[in-house]
């Protein structure tokens, strides 16, 4: 019986997926129009004085402070964690009449091998900032599914509360959206209670239409965040890419009532 229910659930899931996949396939994104809108956005609003300060502080609070280098060691990871807890200088905070202790970045982001160092440093500082780990064969994803899933599990075990996975570009460029959906679903399962950010690597998807499709498929597969890029591609977060992903998030929200977050990297 349990088996049958499970089967039914998967079956209806699959139908729903097919329905939306069909919709995703028919989507059109016009790059030149998107670019024009992206050019207009910064010219239509101005944030000055208090607004400027508040908006900048908001930007700081959304940052994943990151180090992703081959030469990362405990020293610079620890330094990074300190910066994450005290992102704005005390005298500046005083001038703005805000409490420095309250303002931190959103997360510290490192390679899986440095998760333990980060958790340790942040614990020492008494901060509740989550540690994010890049995983799944970051940045290329050109590894077997098995090891990619294993990476997630190890990072979570080491204390990572957020996992940044990369999607399979081989599938994306081949139009195998169902394949991406299945993989990301499995990754979400591997994440357990940790938040999952899906990195689309937009700079390697070729077209904005693919960016939109990848966004929707990842959201359908359970992403908590959709993220532009690894920072290792030649083109990373640009305003047009951000705009297309935001529109995808809005569409998904209008259909499901579930608001997925956006993460822009290497702006």
């Amino acid at each position: 019986m349990i088996f049958f229910c499970d089967f039914l659930k998967h079956f209806s899931d699959f139908f729903l997926f097919c329905y939306y996949l069909d919709w995703v396939q028919r989507i059109n994104i016009n790059l030149s129009a998107v670019k024009r809108r992206a050019e207009a956005i910064p010219t239509r609003r101005a944030v000055k004085k208090e607004c400027q300060a508040a908006w900048l502080l908001k930007a700081i609070s959304c940052i994943d402070l990151t180090t992703l280098s081959g030469d990362d060691t405990f020293t610079n990871v620890q330094r990074l964690c300190h910066k994450a807890v005290h992102p704005v200088r005390q005298d500046l905070c005083d001038a703005m009449d805000i409490d420095q202790k309250g303002l931190t970045v959103a997360a510290v982001c490192v390679y899986p091998a440095r998760v333990a160092d980060s958790v340790k440093s942040l614990k020492f500082l008494g901060a509740k900032i989550p540690v994010a780990a890049v995983a799944t064969g970051f940045p290329t994803g050109q590894y077997s599914l098995e090891t990619r899933l294993e990476e997630i599990k190890r990072a979570v075990a080491d204390g990572a509360q957020e996992i940044d996975i990369v999607i399979n570009r081989n599938y994306a460029l081949g139009g195998n959206w169902e394949g991406i959906y299945r993989e990301v679903q499995m990754m979400k399962e591997a994440c357990g209670s940790a938040h999952m950010k899906t990195i689309l690597a937009t700079g390697e998807l070729g077209t904005m239409t693919n960016v939109y499709k990848a966004s929707i498929v990842c959201m359908m597969a359970g992403a908590d965040f959709i993220k532009t890029s690894t920072g290792k591609e030649t083109v990373n977060a640009t305003l047009p890419v951000g705009l297309v992903m935001t529109r995808a998030i809005r569409d998904y929200y209008q259909i499901t009532g579930y608001k997925v977050d956006l993460h822009l990297s290497n702006i």
Binding site: A46, V47, C51, A53, A54, I98, D99, K101, G102, L103
Partner: peptide, 25 residues
């Protein structure tokens, strides 16, 4: 972020929470 909200009580805090625009003339 809620933690910050408790402590900041000025204009900047308010804008920080609401992310609104002021008139820029």
């Amino acid at each position: 972020m809620a933690a910050i909200a408790d402590r900041m009580s000025n204009v900047i805090l308010q804008i920080f929470q609401e992310l609104n625009y002021a008139q820029v003339t």
